[in-house]
Simulated assay, not measured.
Amino acid sequence: MNRKNDKMDFSFGWLALKLLGKSLYSNAWSAISELVANGFDAGAKNVYVYIDITKKNDAVIELFDDGIGMDNAGIATYVKVGFNKRIAADKPTDVNYLTMGRKGIGKLAALYLSENYYLVTKTSEGKSNWQMIYQENSSDEDERPFLSKTEDEIDIHCKDKWNSCPTGTLLQMNHVNLTGLGDAAFDALSKKLSNFFALDSMNGRKIHLCVNDRNNKTIAFKAVEKEIAFKNMAFIDYNSKDKNSNIPEIIESNIGNTIKFPFNKLNGKQYYEHTVKIEDFESIENIESHGTISCTNINGETVEKNYALTGWIGLHGSIDSKQATQNDPLFSRNKFYNPIQLRLYVRNKLAVENF
């Protein structure tokens, strides 16, 4: 019996690729964070984000890392939409690093930002340049999307810093439209990026950011850091068994801080003083910060999983910007950045922004 026609492969065309990329990310910053996560999953200790907004309607974003880079086999994996990096045979990261990616869709973030981008990658064995140009082929609707190897001379803005990385991958995304983002959005970018990752638990991995908003500006990267207004906190609960995290030391250094609560009718004063209270989760009755839970995996099997509730929860003494910044100058709040959120991280990557 001829079984030739008993199997029909799905065809994944240009339009499907574009629609998938557009549906995955709500804004440019979330797409950039996904590309940063890809760099860390490639073994990078440093990921660099450069944004040239000299022309916001025709911006350039360069994002590169000092990871292991990709050979031809790596490129073949890169173009797959749907690839579980957590079960990959060759894991390029250290034993203390938790791989963030799982579904192999992070590369679509580049397409979300740009329909014309270059991918430059170098390993210990060599270097190659690739280009993606989005093109809906009306003459061949069955044509599948592809990267093209190119010999083009690519004008890399951050050439010196990129050349200092012995191995790694660079994405240059051209003709990016960022016209909807004003100065406040770019001022908040560093804070937003710091919130996408639990940087204090990532073995010293760093994100470096540079935004060029005028011609001939010197390219100078600044490390993205958590800027938490702990000195505006009235109460903090925390639990951290992560040996790589410095959060317990930071929190405990705030023991004894005195903050000012706004209160209009206290002996004619506009505030009263409050000493910050700090407790460990495990010191609170009925709080189980670790244990075992039964759950069902993707195969329908019931399995036992160990869990640990780590992190911290703080209560701001005031969310009035004037009063809060008097308590702690690090306090910042606007329509692009909200410090009043309970965020949930999985594998050191933001899973729920406002839990």
Results as ranks from 00 to 15, higher is better:
I313G: 08
S11Y: 14
I313Q: 08
L113P: 01
D187H: 10
L111Y: 10
D9Q: 12
A198K: 12
I255S: 02
A223Q: 14
W130Y: 14
T218S: 01
N46E: 08
N163S: 13
Y272L: 15
A110P: 06
N338Y: 02
S332E: 03
S124F: 06
N174T: 02
D142Y: 15
M8P: 00
Y337P: 05
A76E: 07
K45Q: 12
N246E: 02
D160M: 15
I236L: 15
S201K: 08
P145R: 07
G43L: 02
N239R: 15
S201L: 04
S289R: 01
L15P: 00
I156S: 12
V211P: 05
I219S: 02
A59E: 05
N72M: 09
R333W: 05
Y345F: 09
D90G: 07
Y134W: 07
D200N: 15
G104P: 11
A185P: 14
C210A: 13
I228W: 04
K127C: 09
C165E: 13
N38A: 05
A28F: 10
Q172N: 01
I340F: 08
V176M: 07
N246V: 03
N327T: 00
T93M: 06
R102N: 09
T123G: 04
S26I: 12
F197S: 05
T302I: 10
F261P: 12
M100A: 12
